[in-house]
C-alpha cells in the first residue's frame, strides 16, 4: 500500500471512530461538528470531480449546494404546512422523506449544472471562472428576492426529514447517513478517476487538441463531469440544510463557492481524500480558533497561502508525497 492509501485509510477510520469517541468522551457536539465536516467534504468531492479531474475552476458551485438546500427546504416546508407545492396541471405535495428529497436535490442541481455547463464551457480560463461566478450571483439574488420561501431571512424547517428505519433526529444516525453518502461519493470518484471517461477527462485537461485528435470532444467530457459534480454538491446541500433545519441565500453565496474550493485546495486538488482532509481541517480550525477570535479566518488565510506556495498537493500531498492516485 502506498503512503497515500495509508493516509486515506486513517482518515476513513477516524471518521468512523468519531461517534464512538464523542460518546466515550461525553462530547456529543463533536458528532454534529463531524457531520458538518462530512457534508462539506461531500460537497468538495463534487467540486474535485470538476476541478481536480477536469481542471474546471468553478466559482459557482454554491449554486448546486444552494439548489440542493432549497430542494430540501421547499419540499419540507410544504410538507410541514400541509400545502401543495403545485396544483396545476397536476398536484405535487411536499415531502419529509429524505430519499425523495435527495432525488429531487440531485436532479435539480444536475439540471442546473447542465444548463450552466452548456453556456459556460464555451469559454475557458478566467472567463469560465467569471461566468460560473455570475451564475452564482444570479441565483443568490434570485433567492433573496423570493419571498415565498423566506427571501433574505431564509426558510426554517421544524422537523428533520425522515429515512425509513432510522431516527434521523439522533445525531449519530444522521451522521451515519452523511458518512455513507461520503463513502459512496469517494468510491464514485475513485472509479471515475480510473475509468476511460476519467482518463480522457484528465487528458482533456492536459492537451485538449490531442484529445480531439483521438475522437473525443473535450467540452462534452467536461460537461458530463460538471453535471456529476453538480449533482454530488447538490446532495451535500440537501444534507446541510437538513443538518441545520434551515436554508438561506447564504448557501448560494460566492463565499460558499470559495469555501468549497478552499476545502479542495487545502486538502489537495485531484487527490481522492483531499476534500475530506480539507473540510475536516477547516471545521476543526473553525471550532478551535472560532472561540479565540471572530477573525479566525486570518489563520486559515495564512495556512492557505502556505499550502499554495509550498505544498501544491495540499495536506494530503504534504503527508503522502506530491503525486498519487490513492
Amino acid at each position: 500500500m502506498s503512503r497515500e492509501s495509508w493516509l486515506n485509510t486513517a482518515l476513513l477510520l477516524a471518521l468512523v471512530a468519531v461517534p464512538g469517541w464523542a460518546l466515550w468522551a461525553d462530547e456529543p457536539f463533536t458528532i454534529t461538528l463531524a457531520t458538518r465536516a462530512v457534508i462539506f467534504a461531500l460537497a468538495a468531492v463534487g467540486l474535485n470531480i470538476a476541478l481536480g479531474m477536469g481542471g474546471l475552476v468553478s466559482l459557482g458551485h454554491a449554486v448546486f449546494f444552494g439548489i440542493g438546500g432549497y430542494a430540501m427546504g421547499i419540499l419540507a416546508s410544504h410538507a410541514q404546512t400541509y400545502t401543495a407545492l403545485m396544483e396545476w396541471p397536476f398536484v405535487i405535495e411536499g415531502t419529509k422523506s429524505m430519499p425523495v428529497i435527495w432525488l429531487v436535490a440531485v436532479a435539480a442541481s444536475s439540471c442546473a449544472a447542465l444548463v450552466i455547463g452548456l453556456l459556460s464551457l464555451r469559454t475557458s480560463g478566467v472567463y469560465f471562472i467569471m461566468i460560473t461566478l455570475a451564475f452564482g450571483q444570479m441565483m443568490y439574488f434570485f433567492a433573496i428576492s423570493w419571498p415565498a420561501y423566506g427571501g433574505e431571512d431564509g426558510l426554517s424547517i421544524y422537523v428533520r426529514n425522515g429515512f425509513p428505519g432510522l431516527n434521523t433526529l439522533v445525531p449519530i444516525q444522521f451522521y451515519g447517513i452523511c458518512l455513507v453518502w461520503l463513502c459512496i461519493a469517494l468510491l464514485l470518484y475513485a472509479r471515475l478517476m480510473r475509468s476511460p471517461f476519467g482518463l480522457a477527462l484528465n487528458a482533456a485537461r492536459q492537451v485538449p487538441a490531442r484529445v480531439r485528435a483521438v475522437g473525443l470532444d473535450p467540452r462534452r467530457l467536461q460537461l458530463v463531469a460538471l453535471v456529476i459534480s453538480g449533482g454530488i454538491t447538490g446532495l451535500a446541500g440537501a444534507l446541510f440544510a437538513d443538518l441545520n433545519r434551515f436554508v438561506s441565500p447564504s448557501m448560494l453565496s460566492w463565499q460558499m463557492s470559495g469555501e468549497i474550493m478552499v476545502f479542495v485546495i487545502i486538502g489537495g486538488v485531484a487527490r481522492l481524500f483531499g476534500p475530506v482532509a480539507g473540510a475536516g481541517f477547516y471545521v476543526l480550525l473553525e471550532h478551535l480558533l472560532g472561540g479565540v477570535s471572530e477573525f479566525w479566518q486570518i489563520f486559515l488565510g495564512l495556512f492557505l497561502l502556505a499550502v499554495v506556495l509550498f505544498g501544491k498537493g495540499g495536506l494530503v500531498g504534504m503527508i503522502a508525497g506530491r503525486r498519487g492516485n490513492g
Binding site: P196, L199, A200, N202, A203, Q206, R210, V211
Partner: peptide
Amino acid sequence: FRDLTVSENLIAAA
C-alpha cells in the same frame, strides 16, 4: 498525455 501512465494513455483513446 504526460500525467497519465502508458496504460492510461492507451485506455483514454480506446
